[in-house]
Design a protein around this nucleic acid. Sequence first.
DNA 1: ATTGACAATGACAACCGTTTTCACTTAGAG
DNA 2: CTCTAAGTGAAAACGGTTGTCATTGTCAAT
Lengths: 143, 143
Amino acid sequence: MAAVAGKALGDSAFSAPGQRGTRQRRVIREWLGTSAAFVSAQQVREGIAAKGDAVGLTTVYRTLQALADAGEVDVLRTDTGEALYRKCGTGHHHHLTCRSCELTIELAGPPSVEKWSQSTADEFGFNDVQHVIELSGTCSNCR
Amino acid sequence: MAAVAGKALGDSAFSAPGQRGTRQRRVIREWLGTSAAFVSAQQVREGIAAKGDAVGLTTVYRTLQALADAGEVDVLRTDTGEALYRKCGTGHHHHLTCRSCELTIELAGPPSVEKWSQSTADEFGFNDVQHVIELSGTCSNCR
DNA sequence: ATTGACAATGACAACCGTTTTCACTTAGAG
DNA sequence: CTCTAAGTGAAAACGGTTGTCATTGTCAAT
Ligand SMILES: [Zn+2]
Ligand SMILES: [Zn+2]
Ligand SMILES: [Zn+2]
Ligand SMILES: [Zn+2]
């Protein structure tokens, strides 16, 4: 689904007209691809710095936001309100996240909840239902 | 479950030894009881002010946090990171919330997901699983 | 290869919700 | 009533995020 028109080694975001390909965006997107965990903007910047590249924090924020808007990364909020980002698959999915290290596994939700979600919304007269299902726990490494 | 020992017309929080019953706490808790929507600390203060009472914002924050710690209110984060609070029932439940006015209905989750949650966690070696299930939509009033 | 228009960058300041500080007030036990 | 520790709230500090704006870099057109 959602095949990119044309370009073969396509990077979907930043290919729209008026969007330029810069070193910073390449580096950020590349680094995100190496992290299985949800990470903060600060962590993205530090991780990139540790590899010798430097990107301004403002640029990290803007790029992450653009990627989130493009649907290329998922965003969630910690209980302190901080935003965490992760490069995820494109289809509908949920997460199993370690509360200690934020390691995350993508899950296909149980099919029954999709129905349940819709019928419950109908029952109470709500439209345009969306559902959020997140599992969290402690991974074997963090035991 | 979690019956309060002794006191009959019990208010669970603020009844521990060393906890004092103040006007501010009474007013905040009372006002929360009248709101079916998730509300911010600011909104709590404004709502109380509109009824002629005045409570410092710091006190609102502290009281909401104490109530949350005591399990008397649920907390969730908006997509901007702001904390919203709601006086909910004590049992395990989920929410159907209007994205426009934050009106919220408490739901019993579909029994199947409780099992699914546990078995999925087991499968990936995660311990102490918790799950968050939130439905959102547009309520009939906000249509 | 050179140019030029305009998107992108990043140091810095502003922002805003939340927490901390601290001098003052007050509930409630004795 | 009195005394003490809990509570209050104005103001300052805090931290993540966003806005500003002068400078830099991309890339289409020449
Ligand atoms: Zn995801
Ligand atoms: Zn872990
Ligand atoms: Zn609730
Ligand atoms: Zn509504």
